[in-house]
Computed example of a mutant assay.
Amino acid sequence: MATSRTDPVDEPSGPGGRVLLIGASRGLGLALARQWAGEGREVVATVRGPGWTALHDLADADPEHVEIETLDITVPAQIVALRDRLAGRLFDLLFVNAGVTNQPEGTVAETSVEEFTRVMVTNALSPLRVIEALQDLVDPAGTIGVMSSGQGSVANNERGGHEVYRGSKAALNTFMRSYAARHRDDRRTLVLMAPGWVRTDLGGADARLSIEESIPRVASTLDALRGSRGLHYVDYLGRTVPW
């Protein structure tokens, strides 16, 4: 007698399966989309708004491997709508890259309530909303990852600076630990990724690493962790980052 299945029927395929990449219009997210598409993976990647981006150029050049969706992660209704559009599809990896830094730089006390709220909602609250909403689209033995930062390490914060951004990433890390605790019986691999200080619009021109030095290693580290259930806070070289 045939048995019915309740999980999505559209199974991942190809090297490493399918990737759902949240936040890929530029910088590290765009580089990840390019990296994974170049490896032959099917990448569904999101942009925030309706305008043309470099991701659209990538999708035009490689439509077999890159598909674009629109999502502002700070708008809960858009997260729900994306989940509904992707219902019935299954991904090997969900990776949340979207994030911002605060402008202008300053101490916590010097930061307006509006700017503090914007950074915290984007970097800490919204990624968890995305994960909670989209987790069922991830293979039961797949990976859920979030772009964190070495600056989210409380133990390593000995020089200060970038206070609001640091705080938002530390909050993200804490929220992911809570998520992992609530899903301790889940077989999925959970990853907080610190990509290193990379020369992007967010990282700045003085950053130590190029995108080409960081992103392939980010991708290979995520591959190496596949199947290692539980939460891992690591850098682009696979080294554990102190909490």
Results as ranks from 00 to 15, higher is better:
residue 15 P to W: 12
residue 11 E to N: 01
residue 203 G to C: 06
residue 180 A to M: 06
residue 192 L to A: 02
residue 144 I to F: 02
residue 46 T to H: 05
residue 56 H to P: 04
residue 98 A to M: 10
residue 195 P to Y: 08
residue 55 L to T: 04
residue 120 M to T: 02
residue 219 A to F: 07
residue 189 T to Y: 11
residue 4 S to W: 09
residue 68 I to G: 07
residue 15 P to I: 12
residue 69 E to Y: 02
residue 4 S to I: 07
residue 123 N to P: 02
residue 188 R to D: 13
residue 195 P to D: 08
residue 174 T to L: 08
residue 224 A to E: 15
residue 223 D to T: 15
residue 230 G to T: 07
residue 100 V to I: 15
residue 174 T to Y: 05
residue 31 A to D: 00
residue 33 A to H: 00
residue 148 S to K: 12
residue 157 N to L: 11
residue 145 G to T: 03
residue 64 E to V: 11
residue 19 V to Q: 11
residue 73 I to W: 02
residue 133 A to W: 08
residue 161 G to I: 03
residue 90 L to F: 06
residue 119 V to S: 05
residue 107 T to L: 09
residue 71 L to M: 09
residue 152 G to N: 04
residue 184 R to T: 12
residue 51 G to L: 07
residue 229 R to L: 05
residue 82 L to D: 10
residue 10 D to V: 12
residue 218 V to G: 11
residue 189 T to L: 10
residue 158 E to S: 13
residue 49 G to K: 13
residue 78 Q to I: 05
residue 215 I to D: 04
residue 185 D to Q: 15
residue 118 R to T: 12
residue 125 L to E: 02
residue 84 D to E: 15
residue 42 E to I: 12
residue 209 L to E: 09
residue 17 G to W: 02
residue 120 M to D: 05
residue 214 S to Q: 13
residue 191 V to C: 11
residue 237 L to V: 03
residue 135 Q to S: 14
residue 234 V to N: 09
residue 98 A to R: 04
residue 56 H to K: 07
residue 29 G to T: 02
residue 238 G to V: 11
residue 181 A to Y: 15
residue 160 G to Q: 10
residue 109 A to N: 09
residue 30 L to V: 03
residue 146 V to F: 04
residue 187 R to Y: 06
residue 145 G to R: 08
residue 39 E to W: 08
residue 243 W to Q: 06
residue 165 Y to W: 10
residue 233 Y to M: 12
residue 27 G to H: 10
residue 172 L to F: 00
residue 74 T to A: 14
residue 69 E to Q: 15
residue 5 R to G: 07
residue 125 L to F: 05
residue 57 D to I: 05
residue 95 F to N: 01
residue 11 E to G: 00
residue 80 V to F: 05
residue 60 D to R: 14
residue 170 A to Y: 00
residue 121 V to N: 13
residue 87 A to M: 09
residue 64 E to G: 15
residue 92 D to T: 15
residue 201 D to H: 07
residue 45 A to T: 01
residue 31 A to N: 00
residue 13 S to F: 11
residue 8 P to Q: 03
residue 233 Y to D: 06
residue 173 N to Q: 06
residue 46 T to P: 03
residue 232 H to T: 09
residue 29 G to E: 07
residue 36 W to Q: 00
residue 81 A to G: 14
residue 117 T to G: 07
residue 90 L to C: 11
residue 243 W to Y: 11
residue 30 L to P: 00
residue 228 S to T: 10
residue 27 G to P: 03
residue 137 L to H: 15
residue 170 A to T: 00
residue 180 A to V: 02
residue 125 L to G: 01
residue 152 G to Y: 03
residue 234 V to E: 12
residue 44 V to D: 05
residue 131 I to S: 06
residue 106 G to Q: 08
residue 117 T to F: 03
residue 111 T to V: 09
residue 162 H to V: 08
residue 27 G to K: 10
residue 224 A to L: 05
residue 170 A to K: 01
residue 166 R to F: 02
residue 7 D to Q: 10
residue 123 N to A: 02
residue 159 R to N: 13
residue 104 P to V: 08
residue 7 D to H: 09
residue 83 R to I: 03
residue 105 E to M: 14
residue 197 W to M: 04
residue 217 R to C: 05
residue 28 L to F: 02
residue 215 I to M: 14
residue 10 D to H: 14
residue 92 D to N: 14
residue 35 Q to K: 04
residue 76 P to V: 07
residue 9 V to W: 08
residue 228 S to K: 14
residue 199 R to Q: 15
residue 218 V to Y: 08
residue 229 R to Q: 11
